[in-house]
Amino acid sequence: MITITNLGKAYNQRIVLFIKELEIKQSEIFGLVGNNGAGKTTLLRLILDLIRADKGAVVSGEFKVARSENWKAYTSSYLDEGFLIDFLTPEEYFHYIGDEYGFSKAEIDEKLQEFKVFFNGEILGQRKKLIREFSKGNKQKIGIVSALITDPKVIILDEPFNSLDPTSQILLKRILVDYNKKTNATMVISSHDLNHITDISHRVALIEKGSIILDLQNDGSALAELENYFSA
């Protein structure tokens, strides 16, 4: 689904990312772990064509992301708070995004019902509360859900478990796995939480100084291997 070849990015002649070859398969949940500054967000931004690749290319489906924009129709993402339009109310925001992808208000409202438990009664129905007035965790929930309501085939999430309370983290794991089972969507998810990421991913890659140094099929031993690496 997503094929990366010879992808390189440098800032001031310092290489921050180089990936020779990486293929993320259709319907795979692809976990990405790595220490701060390893290049996780850079990779996700490159996949979304938000920064210019100095070398190589990312191909999503049959489209080169830097050349075509057709991949945007089936891709959704939430990287950081900068993805939220914070002067809208959550519902206005969901409807706006739904509208962009051709969903009616009623369709979006119906989809939102599925996230009622995740929202814990704090997000929907607050007609006068703007997104910028919500807490960090609730903003995170709004952002993640906004990436799930447009029936995407590819989902890119950057550290989705951050700022969420334990209940919500567990709920989110289930939401993501269910979505993947139901729709066969491809997911690229970065995280610092090794337990969570190995719980949900089919495959986990470890990124360090801009390159992928471990690429593990998640068949039970991945967590131990990762823990071993990070504690060394």
Partner: peptide, 11 residues
């Protein structure tokens, strides 16, 4: 402030 998301979505 939300330009990233504009460029990442279908528009």
């Amino acid at each position: 402030s939300y330009f990233d998301s504009i460029m990442a979505r279908k528009n």
